[in-house]
């Protein structure tokens, strides 16, 4: 018999568009860079330390959990790194190192790995980390107290806390341009609005996040804040102020758009986004917390599986007997 080559045999399709989870995650990290780098410039090396520790410890937790649960080590897909960088972006620069490590433990292990890892998490892991951390050590998330030792050449007040405690007259202290350009106090990656928007637009163009979610979320914010503002301008701040402060923009482009926890069909994406925006403003204006983004996104993550059942009619289903 002749010596025969062995051929690769598998099922169709034999082509792939070349995309992968690695590429997707690297792109998300690249998109997060402008806002993060600005945060590092604003808050100094301490911020860089927090971001690096956050990414590193997130990857370490995932590797450790993979090892303990005897599953293949999956940190090479950068999923933990993405959770790490987004989690780090939501922290103040002065947070102690142990809180970062505890936070990433909650993100990676409690938020994702115990549910089965990538794709199986019911809630955005970074949001779970922030929610638990901010409930447990509220003091670290008081940005005014956290950054008290910094000298800034702009109004050194956390806009949303000021709004909560002193009323909308403080809004006059911040111009929209300065908020957009990062002249505000807040978490490392959430202050530079223009950078987040830039990253978000990049991800939308590359197709790594679904633009419907971001647009609907922002529309929900603007719409609800506008209604409140129109009803009582003395009591409630303007929509643009809400849009450019707190975690709002991070929420619109990096948190609400996390793929496993957001819907994929058009109508559900719109409902999901708008509900996120509405809830954020409701919590801010009526609820107890200065920034409602975290809890709003947890809520919409919760309804995601239910609303994603609204889907277009499948080919050949429905009206089979009717004349076309």
């Amino acid at each position: 018999m002749f010596k025969q080559n062995k051929f690769t045999v598998s099922h169709a399709p034999f082509w792939h568009d070349g995309d992968s989870i690695n590429t997707m995650n690297l792109n998300i990290m690249a998109a997060a860079l402008p806002a993060t780098l600005f945060g590092v410039m604003q808050f100094g090396m301490a911020a860089l330390g927090v971001i690096c520790l956050s990414i590193a410890s997130a990857m370490a937790w995932e590797a450790l959990f993979n090892f303990i649960s005897k599953r293949p080590i999956t940190i090479h897909d950068y999923n933990a790194a993405v959770i790490g960088i987004i989690f780090g972006m939501m922290l103040p620069a002065t947070i102690p190192w142990w809180a970062v490590i505890t936070g990433t433990f909650v993100c990676i292990v409690v938020g994702q790995q115990i549910f089965g890892g990538i794709g199986a998490n019911p809630f955005n892991p970074a949001i779970i980390g922030i929610a638990i951390l901010s409930l447990s050590w509220k003091i670290f998330f008081d940005f005014d107290a956290a950054l008290v030792n910094y000298q800034f050449d702009f109004t050194a007040l956390s806009p949303l806390d000021a709004l909560k405690h002193q009323g909308p007259e403080v809004v006059g202290l911040f111009t929209l341009t300065s908020l957009l350009m990062g002249n505000q106090i807040g978490a490392i990656g959430s202050v530079f609005g223009a950078g987040i928007i830039l990253g978000g637009i990049y991800l939308i163009i590359r197709g790594y996040i679904r633009w419907e979610v971001s647009v609907a979320y922002i529309a929900g914010i603007i719409f609800t804040a506008l209604i409140f503002n129109m009803v009582d301008p003395v009591k409630y701040a303007s929509p643009m102020f809400h849009l450019l402060t707190g975690y709002t923009l991070l929420g619109a482009f990096f948190l609400a758009t996390e793929s496993s926890t957001s819907p994929v069909n058009i109508i559900p994406m719109i409902i999901y986004g708008i509900m996120g925006g509405v809830m954020t403003i409701l919590i801010r204006n009526i609820g107890a917390y200065p920034d409602g983004t975290v809890y709003a996104i947890l809520l919409i993550n919760l309804i995601n599986p239910l609303i994603d059942k609204i889907r277009p009619k499948t080919f050949g289903k429905g009206c089979n007997q009717c004349v076309k």
Binding site: N5, V9, H11, P13, F14
Partner: peptide, 22 residues
């Protein structure tokens, strides 16, 4: 020419089948 571990696709790249022998 065909080499070791190449794939012989009968039909098109999206719907075809792979042959295991020449």
């Amino acid at each position: 020419e065909t080499g070791e571990k190449d794939r012989i696709i009968i039909g098109g790249p999206l719907r075809g089948t792979a042959a295991y022998t020449l």
